[in-house]
Design a binder for these strands. Sequence first.
DNA 1: ACAATGGTCC
DNA 2: ACTCGGACCATTGTA
Length: 439
Amino acid sequence: MKEILKKAEKLGCKIPHKKWSDIDREVAPVLREMEKAGIKIDVSALKRLEKKLSIKVSGIEKKIYKLAGREFNISSPGQLSEVLFSKLKLPTEDLRRIKTGISTSASELEKLKDKHKIIPAILEYRELSKLLSTYLEPLPTLVDGDSRLHTHFGQDTRTTRLTSSEPNLQNIPIKGERGPEIRQAFIAEKGNKLISADYSQIELRVVACLAQDEVMLEAFSRGEDIHAKTASELFRIPVSKVDHDHRRLAKTVNFGIVYGISPFGLSQALGIARESAAEYIFRYFDIHRGIKRYCKEQIALAKKYGYVETLFGFRRKLPEINSENKMVAESAERMAINTPVQGTAAEILKLAMIELHRKLKSEIRMSKSETNPKFECRNPKLLLTVHDELVVEAPAAKAKKVAKLVKEVMENEVKLCVPVEVEVGIGGNWDSAKKNVIK
DNA sequence: ACAATGGTCC
DNA sequence: ACTCGGACCATTGTA
């Protein structure tokens, strides 16, 4: 990794001279303060939503029993499988097999969506009962006297990514019709705003830099839409002819690259044939020679030294890369590709957190004259970290200034050989903060 | 208490 | 016949 650092600095990157252990030591007290601060919850809004959805779910439950011809435990994959495939005799040919029988996962049930009215009902039941049991029911019981929720941050021992537990605030729903409704219950204290700042494609930028992939470096440097660019390469059409479906497929391929792509994995993610997936991968590597070289190199390094490392020198041991079992070895190969990318992205975020924490204290906090003594105006505080996002709470009067600082620090604390771009928004709740992006 | 299954996020 | 990387958590069903 030393060589990459040297080369990177020559290319005008700014990489702090720190080891992963320095970063961890410095980020720990920041995380402790974030845990202590917590995030405010609109408890009554969550409870209202809980009521609404639990009524809805019992209606769906009845409907499912009626369609099935009898009552059973819908949450039990075993019982559900019995009803769908033995009683209702739905076709099982192209469904995935698991240890205990036939899979009833959402991605498999999707294939049966048009075969029977019970399928959409089950999917909706699953969705709603998930939200109820994982978020809407537990969260209100976990708030403190100020209606604030305090998570516990930890760190993944293999990639150095930060984790969140009891409760996990890194998997709060965002998609679908219910995601935003739940996020609207994560609010700022009266007189304050929430600021949400997101890195844009940080992992792809990291891999472009680590791999020195010419095509990708060029695209990012020009500020192009990277997924559309990839789509135009894969389908051999100009970017202007790229439609929504092209782009969606290319996006999945790009994710696949970061994860250590395989034809099987990609085919499953896209729901297409293995051969087609293999063809896309072939085309991708044919154009992105740097990425291809990087993948080969990481696997070779893991085999030679028994580990791979991040930009800041964190090592992940991968003894299984020499396994006789091909599947086990291939899994280790994907980790050899993914870990430096995911780990480096995590380190960049932590460095930004450390610096932001310092600046929020020294720069913003001093300007007392701006605060209105009539309102309860707290100092700006880091609250959450969600892998490529930071959530900050700040007095409304300072929100814009703080938001600009957050963006500036995240974009410049580490400079890669491509621009690091951050989207930042301000709102009264987490949902609106993410949507209300400032210029 | 633990494995298996399923589902939410980045 | 086969998992695209990394978490945390709920429920069911068996030990």
